[in-house]
Design a protein around this nucleic acid. Sequence first.
DNA 1: TTAATTCTTGACTAATTTACTCAGGTAAGA
DNA 2: TCTTACCTGAGTAAATTAGTCAAGAATTAA
Lengths: 166, 166
Amino acid sequence: MRLSTKGRYGVTAMMDLAIHDNAGPVTLADISQCQGISLSYLEQLFSKLRKHKLVDGVRGPGGGYRLARPADEISIAEIISAVDEKVDVTRCNHEGNCQDGVRCLTHELWEELSDRLFNFLSGITLAQFANRPGIHELAIQRDNINGRFILARRQQEVLQQQRRVS
Amino acid sequence: MRLSTKGRYGVTAMMDLAIHDNAGPVTLADISQCQGISLSYLEQLFSKLRKHKLVDGVRGPGGGYRLARPADEISIAEIISAVDEKVDVTRCNHEGNCQDGVRCLTHELWEELSDRLFNFLSGITLAQFANRPGIHELAIQRDNINGRFILARRQQEVLQQQRRVS
DNA sequence: TTAATTCTTGACTAATTTACTCAGGTAAGA
DNA sequence: TCTTACCTGAGTAAATTAGTCAAGAATTAA
């Protein structure tokens, strides 16, 4: 179990998707502007999220990313381990090289702590954050104020249709 | 909240101290050999642990480090934040520069998750690992087999006394 | 008192990871 | 066909990690 800013970026970006889940795909450019993360860096993160089947990419105009599964089936632990890429296999690989028993001992204790942490984060889903009362409305409202995102896009569509008619 | 190998080193080293707590100070050289961490790197980690009042250093022959408080009053969260040195203040510092409300929104959600994690780790103490039935006996036994640590040091003292007598 | 031991501090460095840039692709819709 | 936006990979600057080296201070044992 590891937790760095990389994991935080992954989780916050996924929260963003979850909040806008029912309003079409979200572009990385939007997330980039909102969260202050470089676009290409996000592309790398989402490449991993895609490979781990956590998001679906939708190409072409109007495309972007959406959650691959319902928000209540995606845990924080999944996101972090997808992005942070577990490393660091314990040096004592249960062979002859672990000559000192006490190392193994504290290793075992650490493994247990790590497991507890993972289980804790497995029990927390995106939905617990996205579906809280008021959050969704607040998001739409704020998007609207800033004149971007999905609502802004819808407005553009309306404008284009009006032009076509006239 | 962050969690890297540095934090793991800190926690496992502290577990080591907790296990040997009632048998005098533990030297960094011992921990270094047991855990496979370089001595000087441990010195840096323990410098931080000392500044955060988690351990006491005992100088001179027979010295080493011991816990500054009982193991049941030291939480994992304390150790990690002492060693890992919280960084990364959120970019949106509640001033005018956070122009996009959605950023603030996901930031708040992240903060909440971070808090939950911290509270979880605050509820886990060193004692929960060190005081488990059998652990302590096992540690002594293994130390004995490897002929090092406190027991080995005691044996040396006995031998030296015998020399004095003869 | 002297020597050995062990903590304590600081400066410096190699390796790794993070965060980012650039530069080109490819698929899908208008 | 043109634009949009995903997708990929190579390369890079900055930060962090992990470690080395060297000197010094406190304490105990001889």
